[in-house]
Amino acid sequence: MIKIKNLKARVEEKEILCGINLEINPGEVHAIMGPNGSGKSTLSSIIAGREDYDISGGSIDFEGENLLSLSPEERAHKGIFLSFQYPVEIPGVTVSNFIKTAINESRKSRGEEPMEARKMLAMMREKTVLLEMDKSYLSRSLNEGFSGGEKKRNEIFQMAMLQPKLAILDETDSGLDIDALRIVANGVNKLRSKKNAVMIITHYQRLLNYVEPDFVHVLYNGKIVKSGDKNLALELEAKGYDWIKAENT
């Protein structure tokens, strides 16, 4: 689905990604772990198309297309979704209006008519139930006055509505209490299928207890320094990152 080859990126003069190689296939869940400042969020921002980075080398291929030549909204239309670490507030725009606009813009890009209002509403209801959100969420201003946990849940709600091919969860688990973590994980597991892939960026093992990854990669100093299966995450949890750092200096 997505093939990242020797990806290098910098901000101003600082090299943040120093040659990332990663391939994710449909049906797979990959966890990207690593200490603070290792480049995890940069990687997710670049895949989503944020312009703050200077791509100094390498390529990203998404279903046979050069992803780096597409605008952020075109990438979204192709099925890439980023659950933001810090979701923004948009005052006066309700959750339902926002998601309706998002869905219909994607449909428009495929030459489809807007989704029927009744169908849209039914789908929203269904997903709020899945994420154990009160119906009143839908008429609240997007993220305005939301608690940290509500914001993250709202990200997963949007993911459930948009049904992306590749979902990138950027520290979605941070700031969640144990119940919210279970609910979010449940939402992610519902999306998993043979056709979809998930990339989970996290510091901790705990989300991976609920969403079991097929692969775990450790990112350090802008490189993937170790890959393995779910046991690698358990090992990191037990030993911390120091041994990784020691091996790579």
């Binding site: 909204e73 979204a76 239309h77 923004v88 948009i90 725009v93 998601i99 998002a102 813009e105």
Partner: peptide, 17 residues
């Protein structure tokens, strides 16, 4: 960017905001 990432182009995003 948040709107863009959800598939909403910049013009539409401004109108929405």
């Amino acid at each position: 960017f948040y709107c863009n990432q959800r598939g909403i182009g910049t013009e539409e995003a401004i109108a929405l905001i």
